[in-house]
Amino acid sequence: MRKLYSALKYVCIACLAISLIALVAVVAYVLINGIGNLSFNLVFGEYKPDAPTLLPALVGTLELVAIAAIIAVPIGIASAIFLVEYTNNKGKFVKIVGIATETLAGIPSIVYGLFGYLIFVVAFGWGYSLLGGAITLAIMILPTIVRSTQESLLSVQGGLREGAYALGTSKVRTIFKIVLPSAAGGIVTAIILAIGRVVSESAVLILTIGMVVNKVPETLMAPGTSLALDIYYFANHGRPDEAAATAVVLLILVMLLNLLAGWIGNLIKKSTYGDAK
């Protein structure tokens, strides 16, 4: 028996190696194939049929991130405030909202895409549009923002709220001047991670923004594309070099956002709590 378990140990170590190799291979593949094909013109140049560029995708991605964040961040933070500060995170309503956010978080992104298609493209008659895609993405990232903000608010020590109330501070002022600044580090981390999800997402966008890769969108109601969507488009339209180069851009962007999330969060924590914490 002992021998069996010792052997298992080596199987585990082998699996660790396989995991690392597999994941690193994905990154290495993207970098090796993509970097050579990167050029200034590919990323920022004007789109021509024989020389496609990422300019429309860059604009589209930026607009999607901005709109999705503008919608989801205030609603997410406000609803977390309600759950934590007004109901003590207890009771039936909190439970129902909890189930709703958890269910929303579990819905596959293609179903969000289908929903966005039904409501914005068909029911509202907008056709494919950046705005419709962005609103759909906002709903998709809402649960994450609600949940992480809830956690950040719960981690603020009760003594701070008591201290503010004891000075005759109103509830709303206590929330905005004491509780939110104290929780800011965690909340900002959550927001940046959510932005990372918007940047990575493509299934939702296939059904909502139209994958128009060759035109910089003129308005928010225009159809468009994003970096992630461009990868799919190029890969399926016989342009593997462009696809790999786009993947490099997207990968770097997403990794940066992920690293930035933790880094900025800690920076804010340090500036609110000093070196004490």
Partner: peptide, 17 residues
């Protein structure tokens, strides 16, 4: 960190490798 790789990149890797 690798958990954050967008799925479309996994797709591209799958398609070409």
């Amino acid at each position: 960190l690798l958990a954050g790789i967008p799925s479309v990149i996994f797709g591209l890797f799958g398609m070409t490798i």
